Computed example of a mutant assay.
Amino acid sequence: MKAIFDDRQRLHDPQHFMANGKTYASPESPERITRLMAGAKAAGCGFQPPEDAGLGPIAAIHSAEYLHFLQTIYPRWQRIPDAGAEVIPNIHPAMRSNNYPKSAIGQAGYHQADTACPIGAHTWDAAYWSAQSAITGADLIAGGERAGYVLSRPPGHHAFCDLAGGFCFLNNSAIAAERLRGQGLRPAILDVDVHHGNGTQGIFYARDDVLTLSLHADPDRFYPFFWGGAQERGEGRGLGYNLNLPLPRGTDDAGYMQALDTALRRIRAFGADVVVVALGLDAHIDDPFKGLAITTQGFHTMAGAIAGLGLPLLLVQEGGYVSDALSDNLTAFLKGMS
């Protein structure tokens, strides 16, 4: 299987992560790349760098205002007297439909949903090439490849059209799906990350040309908290084109596969001719976030069921954090597709 990655994706090295009122080093570290790449190579993947398709495919998903913010906020932030090393908001609007502030502090609060997406000197470059990797992967699928793996890091599924959050800046899976749709295909996005793909849902929520599905730990007591309920089905033309399958904390392989079967039936009913798999590996029982309890063999079984659709599959890396099992989990998933 062909795999896509650009080494500039290593440049983003966030130092700040807040949880439960305490500050930690970010779990979304460059070490993830090393382990994921080892797992992909063990499954027989050969890596190639992405082409540069420019901003157009990214701007098809993200607003020009937001892209300008991402490209310029770090040097602006550094002009603030005694500014911290990373752009981290300390205020958020109660309603984002009101004033759009001119200050760097205000815009950070407007465009960053939480403290898990600090912006450093190289964040834009890493996010840009993460997105370009997804675009190249989409082009390979549109060109006739049956499957491909994109090591997108930083990940993307928590990013809305103009809002970063949860380690994510550009929504790689959404960008890839829109690229495929623009080439005449009918994509579904199947998100198997332990966290709800709230950014992906928000981007397509009022659309009927991309089906979005997410299996995740129940957000009543798990990030992202405010999105991901089963009652969220889309709106307007998009009503019925979004499916959330929230799962109890600690759901194991058997319970997960029951929910996955529901998702696969919906993909067939949609008439998809390509699937973007937002491939989070953080549903594993030993992942640091401890949301679900999928085993390494469970990822192998999951992949086989998805491959059973008989459709081209583009795997875009989302979560999956540093643990002894991370490489093996990716290897198991990729081998399960064959």
Score class of each variant (00 low, 15 high):
Ala38Met: 07
Gly39Phe: 08
Ala40Ser: 10
Lys41Ala: 14
Ala42Met: 02
Ala42Gly: 01
Ala42Gln: 13
Ala43Tyr: 00
Gly46Glu: 15
Pro50Gln: 03
Glu51Tyr: 06
Ala53Gly: 12
Leu55Lys: 03
Pro57Asp: 09
Ile58Val: 12
His62Trp: 04
Ser63Arg: 01
Ser63Phe: 01
Ala64Trp: 06
Glu65Gln: 10
Tyr66Phe: 14
Leu67Asp: 03
Phe69Ala: 09
Leu70Lys: 05
Gln71Trp: 01
Gln71Asn: 00
Ile73Trp: 06
Tyr74Cys: 09
Pro75Arg: 03
Arg76Asp: 03
Gln78Glu: 10
Gln78Lys: 11
Arg79Lys: 11
Asp82Lys: 11
Asp82Gln: 10
Gly84Gln: 09
Gly84Ala: 14
Ala85Ser: 14
Glu86Ala: 05
Glu86Met: 11
Val87Arg: 08
Val87Trp: 07
Ile88Ala: 03
Pro89His: 02
His92Thr: 13
His92Asp: 01
Pro93Gln: 11
Ala94Gln: 11
Ala94Asn: 14
Ala94Val: 15
Asn98Trp: 15
Asn99Glu: 13
Pro101Cys: 07
Pro101Trp: 08
Lys102Ala: 15
Ser103Gln: 11
Ser103Met: 06
Ile105Thr: 01
Ile105Gln: 13
Ala108Thr: 04
Ala108Phe: 04
Gly109Arg: 08
Tyr110Ser: 01
His111Lys: 09
Ala113Val: 00
